[in-house]
């Protein structure tokens, strides 16, 4: 039996581990399946955090506004379902309780906190060689804290505490990701996922709340309007940063503008798109050399738009429409990532 000579390798052209000194060694590429899992792990953690924060802010908002007309209360809770693209709420009396349960525990709701953390953890379990043990242990502990038998009791006792623990758990996970993982391809996929998710949810939060406020303009007095916009900012973890810029002025245009275009704040859409672009560029550079890939093109164009956008143009087009376009683009980008890197 003769040993065959190694043929030209199949697949994308690129760097193929040329023998040389370790300094010139390229990033060890991830298994396609691992990259897929890494991405979704990060995306689900970010999603869980958003769900928790929205539930927290929403319930606090309704305390603040006291006795609104029940229809409006209902509208508020419904908006949460809209934001997370879920519809089938089980029937029953107390709407607030039902929405809370549905978004926290319901196994039929793919975006419930429990499902998100379960998926995140399952993905993590399959790629433990790619994440740090600190990341795993904390995500695992977070999962078990939501999954344990006495969690429904904790929820009944103090839902706010539960939501806070999820938010803290997520931020801890993200901090550990940043600080215990080399900022190579693995880390880049988590950043890409996180920023795409953040962009998507932020768009939907502004869009949904904007719709509510628009259609109830005559009912809302300025106090109510202010409270609502404050709630929008809180939902995006942005109220303090906003106030530092614009003091207490809850002008809706300014708020929307801040959340969409603010250059420096990590929760803005502009910043998130920029972050996603940086991540995909790095991924592309480490795996494909100089061949621009479709995801990068999509995000690059969006980033440029946001970079040079003027608030007046956005207002002319209309905020909901503008945000819809961004969501569509983000969705296209996510599909492109799937095609380019995860198909296996």
């Amino acid at each position: 039996m003769t040993v065959a000579q190694e043929p030209t390798p199949v697949g994308m052209p690129g760097i193929f581990g040329v023998a040389g000194d370790s300094k010139s060694k390229p990033d060890r590429p991830m298994l396609a399946r691992d990259a897929d899992a890494m991405y979704w792990m990060a995306r689900y953690v970010e999603r869980a955090e958003h769900v928790a924060r929205l539930l927290l802010v929403n319930s606090n908002l309704l305390i603040d506004v006291g006795d609104l007309a029940p229809a409006l209360q209902a509208r508020q809770w419904q908006s949460l379902l809209t934001i997370f693209r879920t519809a089938d709420l089980p029937d029953g009396p107390d709407l607030a309780q039902r929405v809370g349960q549905y978004l926290t525990f319901n196994l039929d709701n793919p975006n419930s906190i429990l499902n998100c953390l379960t998926h995140a953890r399952e993905n993590a379990r399959g790629i433990r060689e790619n994440i740090s043990s600190e990341m795993w242990e904390n995500l695992n502990a977070l999962y078990w804290s939501i999954r344990s038998d006495d969690t429904p009791n904790r929820f009944d006792d103090s839902p706010d505490d539960l939501f806070r623990s999820v938010m803290t758990g997520s931020m801890l996970f993200q901090g550990l990701t940043d600080q215990t993982l080399a900022h190579d391809q693995r880390w880049q996929f988590t950043q890409l996922a996180k920023y795409l998710e953040r962009t998507d949810v932020t768009c939907r939060v502004i869009q949904t709340k904007y719709d509510i406020l628009k259609s109830n303009e005559q009912i809302f007095d300025s106090t109510l309007r202010n409270l609502h916009w404050m709630a929008v900012l809180r939902s995006c973890c942005s109220i303090e940063a906003y106030r530092r810029q614009y003091l207490g002025d809850m002008d809706p245009t300014r708020v929307a503008g801040f959340l969409i275009l603010e250059r420096n704040f990590p929760r803005s859409i502009r910043f998130s798109v920029s972050g996603a672009l940086a991540a995909i560029s790095a991924i592309r550079a480490s795996s494909r050399g100089n061949v621009i890939d479709p995801t990068e093109r999509i995000l690059g164009r969006l980033d440029a738009q946001l970079e040079y956008a003027e608030l007046s143009e956005i207002l002319t087009e209309g905020i909901p429409a503008y945000l819809q376009r961004i969501q569509t683009t983000v969705h296209e980008a996510a599909m492109a990532v799937q095609q380019s890197y995860f198909m296996h």
């Binding site: 190694e6 390798p9 199949v10 697949g11 994308m12 052209p13 690129g14 760097i15 193929f16 581990g17 390229p26 590429p29 991830m30 298994l31 396609a32 399946r33 990259a35 391809q185 991924i283 480490s286 795996s287 494909r288 890197y341 296996h344």
Partner: peptide, 8 residues
């Protein structure tokens, strides 16, 4: 199968 193509 990796994100950078085939690796032996």
């Amino acid at each position: 199968r990796t994100t950078a193509g085939m690796r032996r």
